[in-house]
């Protein structure tokens, strides 16, 4: 196969480190690889929880359900770890606590906005960033349109 001079350059290889996949969260990461955002909720009291685990922290039930999450949420807290540069990031990432529409909060990253422009309760939506080892992880960006 010959290369033509105007062949598109491949996207840069991802530097973000892949998640460590533990048994209880395997469904979450497998879904992420397919750009699906799943959560875990209790099969009895129906409350959401994160990170995934065997037992409901609210009612101690062992019934668990994997459910599709809306992917929408708001910024509850944020920072930017500038030094030392976190491993796997070319530039310091904005780290947020995101409050998902379903009520759970989780720590993730916010991209597509300058640190100075992050606002309390700013609306965000999930998307997926590639990592090393051909995985994808959910991160957030400012919400593009109202549902």
């Amino acid at each position: 196969m010959t290369q033509t001079p105007d062949a598109p350059t491949p996207p840069p290889k991802p530097t973000r480190i892949a998640p460590i996949i533990q048994h209880d969260a395997k469904f979450f990461w497998d879904a992420s690889d397919k750009e699906e955002f799943l959560g875990e909720k209790c099969g009895d009291c129906q409350q959401f929880r994160f990170p995934p685990r065997p037992m409901c922290p609210h009612c101690h039930s062992l019934k668990r359900e994997e459910v599709k999450l809306s992917g929408y949420g708001t910024v509850h807290g944020w920072t930017i770890p500038r030094h030392p540069p976190p491993f796997g990031f070319k530039e310091a990432p904005i780290v947020i606590i995101v409050e998902l529409q379903e009520g759970t909060r989780m720590v993730s990253n916010l991209v597509g906005v300058a640190y100075e422009d992050v606002k309390q309760d700013m609306e965000v939506e999930v998307f997926f960033e590639p990592t090393m080892g051909n995985h994808k992880v959910p991160v957030f960006r400012p919400r593009s349109k109202k549902a």
């Binding site: 460590i20 533990q22 944020w78 920072t79 770890p81 030392p84 976190p86 780290v95 989780m106 992880v137």
Partner: peptide
Amino acid sequence: ATDSEGRAGLPLPGLYALQAQRYMA
């Protein structure tokens, strides 16, 4: 490494920084 916080690039100082930012807000 298995805590999700760490994979988001959040070191220990960042965890306290989140608290400080929440406190300011």
